[in-house]
């Protein structure tokens, strides 16, 4: 497990750096007081700032990567500019070119109308990075698979192959029966997208991609559409006219089943979002303790706990990828199953 260890190391390093920063924070505080803009440490603001999307990538104070803003409105058409235009030299939010930024949402300055914001935000950038890492790793595995044809796997290939086999044999096959091959590419992509997203999200400074509800919603919606488009007669019959149940009960079951069609993807969306976001909030809250108390000893203690929680987060990263893929294959599997043998 090269990567998770690396991630844990980095997280530990990050926690350590934060403790270091807390050492010099009194100096900072006095600086701020001297300039007359003393602001108390607001943990919830810092934490939300991290877990939410943003138009710039804030790695650390003084290390901010401005990201491109892409906006479309019927009034002004499509426009692309850097998000740094929204900030002056004192990091105050300013209007730019008739657009204004309020709580990470972009509006037209004159009418206050929201525009279609297609910006490469922090999470979109993270999405690209995630996709690039995914493609890089698995394409090199594919290359190795071609080069090593008929030979034993080696290197990265032998590291990834057991995971791929695990997804195929332990998640997809048992839940989908003989239909599995049709959905296997989607399931594998889903699994690795979530796994890599979760793991990359644990890196210090990384964006909270898989803990973003828009991302989990899209994933859940794809599973939802795959389930209902591929649903066979047995699946729909089960929903609208549950077999093997007395008539009055069928009428009671009908709305429950129809609600069930939507609660399934809804639960997928919420589960992943909550699990990952909650993990990030817990980690950041523990790190924030050091700043709230302003003590290195609290920082030291919370760093130890952060290290421990980080290891749990590594576990959660795998578990959530597993659970999302398993439930997706289960839902689709139930929709395409050959009925008649059960009930």
């Amino acid at each position: 497990m090269k990567k998770p260890v690396f991630a844990a190391k980095s997280s530990f390093l990050a926690a350590f750096l934060i403790v270091l920063v807390s050492l010099i924070s009194p100096v900072w505080a006095s600086d701020n007081e001297a300039s007359g803009e003393a602001e108390p440490f607001n943990a919830s603001e810092v934490i939300l700032h991290h877990v939410l999307d943003d138009h710039q990538w804030h790695f650390a104070d003084g290390l901010v990567l401005p990201l491109p803003v892409i906006v479309y409105s019927s009034e002004k058409g499509l426009e692309v500019f850097s998000s740094s235009r929204f900030y002056d030299e004192h990091h105050n939010v300013v209007e730019y070119n008739g657009y204004k930024l309020e709580h990470s949402h972009i509006y037209l300055a004159d009418t206050g109308k929201a525009v279609l914001d297609l910006s490469i935000t922090k999470n979109v950038a993270m999405l690209f990075i995630n996709a690039a890492v995914l493609l890089f790793i698995l394409l090199s595995v594919a290359k190795a698979a071609k080069a090593n044809k008929g030979k034993a796997p080696k290197g990265l290939q032998s590291f990834m192959e057991p995971i791929i086999l695990f997804v195929r044999d332990e998640i997809v096959k048992p839940n989908m029966g003989h239909h599995y091959e049709r959905f296997l590419p989607y399931m594998l992509t889903l699994f690795f997208f979530i796994l890599f997203g979760n793991l990359l999200g644990l890196l210090p400074g990384a964006a909270n991609l898989t803990g973003n509800i828009a991302v989990t919603m899209v994933l859940a919606l794809i599973t939802f559409f795959l389930t209902n488009i591929n649903g066979n007669k047995g699946y729909w019959g089960h929903i609208f006219w549950t077999p093997g149940v007395p008539l009055p009960l069928r009428i009671v079951i009908l709305p429950v089943e129809i609600i069930g069609v939507f609660t399934k993807p809804f639960s997928l969306m919420i589960r992943l979002f909550v699990a990952i976001t909650a993990g990030h909030i817990v980690l950041l809250s523990l790190i924030s303790l050091a700043f709230i108390f302003g003590s290195i000893w609290v920082g030291f203690a919370s760093s130890l706990i952060v290290l421990f929680i980080n290891l749990i987060e590594l576990l959660v990263a795998g578990i959530q990828a597993y659970v999302f893929t398993m439930f997706s294959s289960m839902y689709i599997g139930m929709a395409v199953a050959d009925h008649g043998h059960d009930h």
Partner: peptide, 19 residues
């Protein structure tokens, strides 16, 4: 936290399906 951003949804659909 609970309101999905339109831009991210569209990017996610595009990137994920392409992926």
């Amino acid at each position: 936290l609970l309101t999905p951003g339109t831009g991210l949804i569209l990017w996610q659909i595009f990137v994920f399906l392409l992926l």
